[in-house]
Write a protein that binds this DNA or RNA. Sequence first.
DNA 1: GTAGCGATGTATCGGGCCGATACATCGGGA
DNA 2: TCCCGATGTATCGGCCCGATACATCGCTAC
Lengths: 216, 216
Amino acid sequence: MLELAILGLLQETPMHGYELRKELATKLGTIRAAISYGTLYPTLKRLKTAGFITESASDPSMIPPMTSKRGRVVYKITADGKERFADLLAQAGPETYDDAGFGVHFAFFSRTDRATRLRILEGRRRRIEERREGLRDVLSRAAGRLDAYTLELQRHGLDACEREVRWLEELITNERSGRAPAASAGSFDIPATEQSPAPVSGYAPLEKPRPHQDRP
Amino acid sequence: MLELAILGLLQETPMHGYELRKELATKLGTIRAAISYGTLYPTLKRLKTAGFITESASDPSMIPPMTSKRGRVVYKITADGKERFADLLAQAGPETYDDAGFGVHFAFFSRTDRATRLRILEGRRRRIEERREGLRDVLSRAAGRLDAYTLELQRHGLDACEREVRWLEELITNERSGRAPAASAGSFDIPATEQSPAPVSGYAPLEKPRPHQDRP
DNA sequence: GTAGCGATGTATCGGGCCGATACATCGGGA
DNA sequence: TCCCGATGTATCGGCCCGATACATCGCTAC
């Protein structure tokens, strides 16, 4: 799952590890607070071995800091990596519908075609509905066997499930009618670039590629 | 974290692995769908090595099935294990406040004294508030840099945070005023045993110990 | 001026947890 | 009778995390 996220970010612009972690944190802040380096670096190594990314020392012309010793390493996606990213984006296994997997896929929906978006949203809805039914069963059947705190936990979980199903329903409706996802709480507006044609989906904006500056 | 949950369930009644997994699933259904055997059995082995539980073949008088070969293994908590459980319940590290850790602790709140309950609820609230602030920062500062789907994800996450903070606030208020946690959505009532004095908290009920029957 | 501190930066290690898999028995329906 | 689903125990490879180590840079405080 992390593989998809890394490939997705590197598709926008090359980066070094530290930067990648920060971008990951802001893009996936809802899913996972901050990715650990103990995960990030081994994953990068794996991706490099698989030929999906290349690592290169940041070109010396751009470094005022880091005189020598151990320079920072800039990671860059390869053609194979882009292909891999597209594959991962489109294919949906069971792990696509758990909390982490769905979050990552959703975060890259602007690079996903509408059919896939709908498939994933519906798969996720199904998953949450199952969880919801499980909780309802427990609450109705096993209520007498559980203490008040456990019951309160289940109730809160059930509530969250119902809320998420409604959210997904709304998103699905929007997708079908071809509208952008900016449904609720309209206090933040969408950048004007949104109207310009985007590579895959036709309306969702890419991040404007910050030019990977080392120092301004 | 799983260690705490297993010890907690075995405190109620001895069980074998399969049963344990099912109980875990209903008690922690909100936290984690179902614990994997690839986690459960190694953990049980670890607990046994540490002396917190003992494993014994289910007594042959109770087995119509499983003629011989490989009988089921019944796990039982030891005195050390009970002590360990109490320790884990009371002490609160950083991992106590993440999603999984908090959920497990909360599920055993009926065996936790009120001071600890309050400490944990407040720690969790703090944690969620931090996440919430992070999301607000992203939404206000980096809004222009992110696409509409990513923004929608953050908005939904922020919403969930705010909701959870309110829930925690309610629980904290209840704790301070000495009320039971059955606040919202009162369609399920609390078993009558609740009035009887419980070991630690004074009012929250233990599960009624099902007599661990193999076949009725 | 210089000492320290926080941000930037790369990397490894042990351990927890997961999904896939293997193996074995039992009851019941096709 | 035969197979399927539930019950049951167990291992293996792999992902991911927290802790830890090490090194540099820029700023502030003394």
